[in-house]
């Protein structure tokens, strides 16, 4: 089988493109609450940039970038960020996910905006971690890797 990681063009192009995908993914996450996009879409793109390197350079080299064992814990951490944001609002006297009570800023609408952003970051991390974990789990047991 012809192995793609031996091909310098594929490797080079992927390495150039991957950071731009990440940058765009971050843009999508951070603008999610007032333009199309959000945590899920951004997280998927983040995962796509990591998976591109995994496909082009081979899973072994890609371990230097993102270890196989990080996927599931990152997914949990993402969920916990979401959960902690909502729960903090609850502890501050509101209902779950009522960002108004987070008291992050003087202006109420600003507080809400930051609250949504925190949740989107959590969702983005969770989606990225889980998608990479699914890819790695599917490859497990494949002798070619």
């Amino acid at each position: 089988m012809i192995r793609n990681e031996d091909n310098p063009i594929v490797g080079l192009v992927s390495r150039i493109v991957s950071p731009f995908i990440m940058l765009f993914a971050l843009y999508i996450i951070f603008h999610g609450h007032y333009s199309p996009g959000g945590g899920f879409q951004g997280g998927t793109m983040l995962a796509a940039s990591l998976l591109l390197i995994r496909l082009a350079m081979g899973s072994e080299i890609a371990q230097l970038q993102f270890k196989r064992s990080w996927g599931t814990p990152l997914g949990s951490i993402g969920v916990l960020i979401y959960f902690a944001t909502g729960f903090t609002a609850m502890l501050m006297g509101g209902t779950f996910l009522n960002y108004e009570f987070l008291s992050l800023s003087e202006i109420a609408s600003h507080t809400r905006s930051i609250g949504v952003l925190l949740v989107e970051i959590g969702v983005g991390l969770a989606v990225m971690g889980i998608l990479v974990a699914i890819y790695d789990d599917l490859l497990e047991g494949d002798p070619d890797v």
Partner: peptide
């Protein structure tokens, strides 16, 4: 936290624990 949150608390506790377990019990 006020007790008025109790209706939502049960699913939230399970969700939080589900997210915590893979981290603290990974080893």
């Amino acid at each position: 936290m006020t007790l008025s949150n109790t209706p939502a608390l049960i699913p939230l506790i399970f969700l939080g624990t589900a997210a915590l377990i893979p981290i603290i019990a990974s080893r």
